[in-house]
Amino acid sequence: MNTVVLLVCTGLGLGALYFLVASGLSLIFGLMDVLNFAHGALLSVGAYAAWWASAEAGAGFWWAVLFGTVTGTAASVLLELAVIRPLYSRPRDQILATVGVGLALPALIMGIWGADARPFQPPAALAGTVSLLGAVVPVNRFVLMGAALVVLVLLRLFLSRTRYGLVVRAGVEDRAMVTALGIDVRRAFTLVFAIGGAAAALGGALAGLYFGSVNPGQGTGLLIFAFVVVVMGGMGSVTGAAVASAAVGLVQQFANYYTAAGLGDLSVVVLLAVLLLVRPRGLTGRLA
């Protein structure tokens, strides 16, 4: 029982991390048809910015997380304006350009701070554990889950209650029609990139808390699982991404624990292939 509770909490914590990466990825693909291979790099930017603020500049933990999120958002907006936008009429080149950025950014981080993992010191309040149903669970799992829930609620509110949310939803549904109605959908592109980058960078800052350290390859390693979540949840669907990320996190943790180590990662990746083959429309799923 203790083990099950711990595995559930860890799985949901990991799922929350996946959700933070996948929600932006899903919105970006749904709206713009760009599979953003640089999304993992944005996570790394957030992680290193938060680490730098807390370890080098001596800021408090929450200020560091905020700094990481803001830096990641800025990087994401810059990416959209400088790299994606000029290639608007060449969809395949957009993907290739994000591949290039996804290679270059982690390399730059590696050049500045080295290839080794840097330890991330959590504040005392978040370093401890709590006991839940007899299991001893690290607090940071709940921090991640809380952050993911807040992001989910905010995204839902933004999409359903604001005018720009309406434009984004309509754009995911039929971009050409939105343009035909006289709405500049490109502004929504930048906005969606900003939101996605903010969520990914927040995920990066909290990933430092979850893993206890930051390293340049972290984001890219998480990206493949975020792809699984995006495809499972349906492209462009935030709620779908939330459900899928919880499922993926749980499956991975349980399979890794009860079968051979590594089998969980393998099963999730194979799950992606199977899902795409059985339900190719998972890619064209609409906003839920």
């Binding site: 000029p86 270059a104 730059l108």
Partner: peptide
Amino acid sequence: LFLLGGLFVLVVY
């Protein structure tokens, strides 16, 4: 890798 990634983006662009 940074130089090559950057060069790649430039070539695509």
